[in-house]
């Protein structure tokens, strides 16, 4: 048990928990915990599409964003590679429940075809990436949105989206650390000690990646607010022009 550092070192390269690497009890427990969120998420997707059929494409693009970012392994300052989650965008645009469904699709693809993550650890990985990540990210987004209400709309939205996407990414890794700590507690310091160590190493690797994810998500939302302005207004991501906050944005372009 002396080599926990090596475990930490190598786990930090890979955000998802590998196949068979959670004891059966943990695997079942996380699956049971994640299942209701995924069912609710699938229902939310159906309802979102029914309520606004035009949103179907954007919903698909949000899922696709998660797909792309999960496939991109990016080098980090610790000398290893990891990948972002892409779960923040959909959570911000369509609220977190839909990401429980869309994120699961991504994780399933990676588990089945890429031996990345796994079926037995799907529940745990869904819980971290598709449930906690989106909710924490959404919370951060809403908070920053409220705090920046006085800034020009484009700037305020940018800050909020950055915070949301980066927090979604970081919180995913925090939950993964916790899950690993619960399964493999440190011999001396127990679950808490293991979590602190996992968390410390994860954060160093993941902070630059979370910043990248935040920036890329802001870019996407900026592009959306140009070509899909009506849709963002309908989704209440952009505030309506009535409050006058959109006037500067319009004025700048003319």
């Amino acid at each position: 048990m002396t080599t926990i550092h090596e475990v930490l070192e190598s786990w930090s390269h890979n955000m998802h928990i590998a196949e068979g690497f959670l004891p059966p009890v943990h695997a079942v427990a996380w699956t049971v915990a994640a299942a209701p969120f995924v069912l609710h998420g699938a229902r939310s997707v159906t309802l979102a599409v029914r309520a606004d059929p035009d949103a179907k494409l954007l919903l698909g693009a949000s899922g696709a964003f998660c797909f792309v970012l999960s496939a991109l392994k990016i080098p980090s300052v610790t000398g290893s590679c990891s990948h972002p989650t892409g779960a923040g965008l959909g959570a911000i645009l369509f609220r977190p429940p839909v990401m429980a469904a869309l994120g699961t699709v991504t994780l399933l693809f990676q588990a089945l075809l890429l031996a990345h993550g796994g079926l037995t650890t799907l529940g745990a990985n869904v819980f971290s990436m598709a449930v906690v990540g989106p909710w924490v990210g959404y919370g951060g987004y809403r908070l920053v949105r409220r705090l920046t209400a006085r800034l020009p709309e484009t700037t305020a939205l940018g800050f909020a989206v950055f915070a949301g996407a980066a927090l979604a990414s970081l919180s995913t890794y925090s939950v993964t650390s916790l899950q690993l700590a619960l399964a493999f507690p440190d011999a001396g310091s127990g679950v808490l000690g293991a979590f602190a160590k996992f968390g410390a190493i994860f954060s160093i690797t993941q902070i630059p990646l979370a910043v990248i994810e935040g920036l890329v998500t802001v870019v996407i939302v900026r592009l959306l607010s140009t070509v899909a302005r009506d849709e963002l207004l309908r989704l209440a991501v952009l505030r309506s022009a009535a409050g006058g906050s959109a006037a500067p944005a319009g004025g700048r372009a003319v």
Binding site: W11, H13, A18
Partner: peptide
Amino acid sequence: FAGADGQAEEAVGELAPDY
């Protein structure tokens, strides 16, 4: 800059030898 699935598996073997 390895993607360390393989290393991770080895390492868990060391952390929890009977796992």
